[in-house]
Design a protein around this nucleic acid. Sequence first.
DNA 1: TTGTAATTAGGACAATCGTCCTAATCCGTC
DNA 2: GACGGATTAGGACGATTGTCCTAATTACAA
Lengths: 198, 198
Amino acid sequence: MREKTTRDHIVKAADQLFYQQGFEHTSFADIAGVVQISRGNFYYHFKSKDEILDAVINVRLADRQVMLKQWEVEGETPLDRIYSFIHILIKNQEKIIKFGCPIGTLSTELSKLNHASQNDANKLFTLFRTWLCRQFTLLGRETDADDLAMHLLARSQGVATLATAFRDGEFIKIEAQLMCDWVKSQAVETTAARRSIH
Amino acid sequence: MREKTTRDHIVKAADQLFYQQGFEHTSFADIAGVVQISRGNFYYHFKSKDEILDAVINVRLADRQVMLKQWEVEGETPLDRIYSFIHILIKNQEKIIKFGCPIGTLSTELSKLNHASQNDANKLFTLFRTWLCRQFTLLGRETDADDLAMHLLARSQGVATLATAFRDGEFIKIEAQLMCDWVKSQAVETTAARRSIH
DNA sequence: TTGTAATTAGGACAATCGTCCTAATCCGTC
DNA sequence: GACGGATTAGGACGATTGTCCTAATTACAA
């Protein structure tokens, strides 16, 4: 699990710092301080700061892909798997309160910077969106699975934003429970009368 | 409505630029370019960039207070007033797709910067939170009015975040409708059997 | 018209940013 | 031990940042 190469160290440190301080607010000096490396050495491994960002995004994509695969193995039903998604809000509670959602905050920042990598960063959202979409399809909601996926994604994003602003961990717990209840109610509707989301 | 003083011009330009580009990514040169003023002249009106931020936050607070007051006058029922809140997502659709929610994105950025004014910026959230809380109380949900207010705030924040990421205006419309349906269902529960939020 | 305060323009400032260059060092191979 | 490529250290660079200082200009009162 421990990274061996200097390049991996740089990416790992950048990943954390971009999350905690934001991309623009993190300087080469900051990363160098963590990795214990000379500033000039960066440019042997990366041609620019943007290239480090790309590497960070790719690492995050790979990490989340592994996580989603793991949820597919562990969760027997699509319901269980969606619960796993909701549960990361609880699991990462402390970090979310301090720094928000790593995917959402990066997407928001790059959007304001009008950064060239915003499309790449948003692939992280798409990754969860299509995964959730597939689970809702398996749940029998093939016609509106994507709407349900977007709905759940949005709610988790909103919870993260407000939990950070108000430094409120209890709020995360309450909303996570509501989200689980909502998902369950959506599954039930497969056998019951089909209604709109509410 | 037109601002007279140079100070007001600066604050207005900073307000827009902080929204569109973010606080840190907006330089004095950027503001000066809009206001058509020399860079050195800033420090006659403000002692620092942080002081401009404080002024912007106060202007936003005043603006939103006026808006909320207006909704109280226009809306006959608390239900109507909450609808007005949800409707800003539709009204500001284009801006939200481009730049997100001005309150949420500022709060998120200042949180990452660990900026001294983050508490002041979060007062914007509190303003809507207490206002929504009052409306839900008038709706007969005095016991969990604050939970409902936070829930609605979170959902609107999440919608804004994803609408920006996916540049999707249709998503805003769908979710706004869902939120309206949800609010209505919450009001109905006052007369019907009291259940948990779902 | 004159004098005084308010306002502005423009440049200097130290610090920091991302970037780049070159010399030194490391390390495995012959 | 010597060679050669991979890796690193350290500083120089131009640009930009927020901040500050001072002289010039404006606007208003006497």
